[in-house]
């Protein structure tokens, strides 16, 4: 009697029991922090002073008046926009190039992936040395062509582009990898048909490769954009947000408030805005992915 009950009970409920660990982890590590973040963003919380007061939307109002926040926001947008666009273009060109049968493409492929394998901190430290105006290797090389005195990350005007360049160097391979995988999974039939119909190389790319590759492109862009919006390591090491705040990004600014000044409420509110912004952009891409039909 009892044994029968157990097996019946477990048959009915085992599935719930089995997902308990996962649900627990999800609740503890994702859902609880999210709810806490919403609550914290409506408070002024400072661990140093022990202050914890409900202030409604005061944090958000202050953020909108905060010139440093807007400066960081602008830098983040420029960094993401310029960086991801160039990474995508270069990655696509490389992928197209290396998916055709050229000599030594396996070696090129492996070499191209190496920047991505390095930890961002290492990349930042290496580039900081490469960029030293006086005896860095880039300026030495440019000097051979008569170009002198570029200050790279030390000048207000070139600091952000210099950091974007580091990001491009490190993450173009990622774009390349995903796009290459996409290219290689494309069906061959449309290409054969196009060749029979006498389509030019550009036409093949424009009307066959590009539409077929669109889902992969969207995923690649989405991943890179979400990642770049929270860029931190390289900037923290290379410029600390300077000179004159020219390279301060949102993550850096949030870190400062959260972990240096202990304005937890304010930092959480900013993180929340960054999250909302990221969600909006992602949704835009995901919708694009859903509505676009691959085959007409």
């Amino acid at each position: 009697m009892q044994v029968g009950n157990i097996s019946k009970w477990s048959e009915k409920n085992l599935k719930y029991l089995l997902i308990v660990p996962t649900v627990f982890l999800l609740v503890a590590l994702t859902i609880y922090p999210l709810i806490y973040a919403v609550i914290a963003s409506l408070h002024v919380i400072n661990i140093r002073t022990g202050e914890n007061v409900f202030v409604g939307f005061q944090n958000f109002i202050e953020i909108f008046k905060d010139q440093y926040f807007w400066n960081a926001f602008k830098n983040t947008i420029v960094f993401t926009g310029v960086g991801v666009t160039i990474e995508f273009t270069l990655g696509l060109i490389l992928a197209l190039f290396l998916s055709s049968k050229i000599v030594g493409r396996n070696i090129f492929r492996s070499l191209l992936l190496s920047p991505m394998m390095l930890p961002p901190i290492v990349v930042a430290i290496i580039f900081k040395i490469i960029y030293i105006p006086e005896f860095g290797v880039i300026n030495w090389f440019l000097g051979l062509f008569g170009i002198r005195g570029i200050l790279w990350e030390a000048s207000v005007h070139t600091a952000l582009p210099s950091l974007i360049l580091v990001d491009i160097w490190e993450w173009t391979p990622f774009m390349f990898l995903i796009l290459l995988a996409g290219l290689q999974s494309l069906p061959l039939d449309p290409y054969e048909a196009a060749v029979v119909d006498g389509a030019s190389g550009f036409q093949i790319f424009r009307y066959i490769t590009f539409p077929l590759l669109k889902p992969v492109i969207v995923i690649a862009l989405l991943l890179r954009i979400m990642d770049t919006l929270r860029i931190f390591d390289q900037i923290f090491i290379m410029t600390g947000g300077g000179p004159a705040n020219a390279t301060e990004t949102l993550s850096l600014y949030i870190y400062r408030h959260g972990f240096r000044f202990y304005n937890i409420g304010y930092a959480t509110a900013m993180s929340f805005l960054l999250l909302i912004f990221t969600v909006i952009i992602s949704n835009f891409f995901i919708r694009f992915l859903k509505t676009e039909k691959v085959f007409e």
């Binding site: 207000v156 300077g242 705040n245 000044f261």
Partner: peptide, 22 residues
């Protein structure tokens, strides 16, 4: 002062602007 981190950060931004010639 207890808020030296914040003061140092702010002072640092303006020093950096002066050093950069901004």
């Amino acid at each position: 002062i207890s808020n030296w981190n914040e003061v140092e950060n702010t002072f640092g931004i303006h020093l950096s602007k002066a050093v950069a010639g901004q």
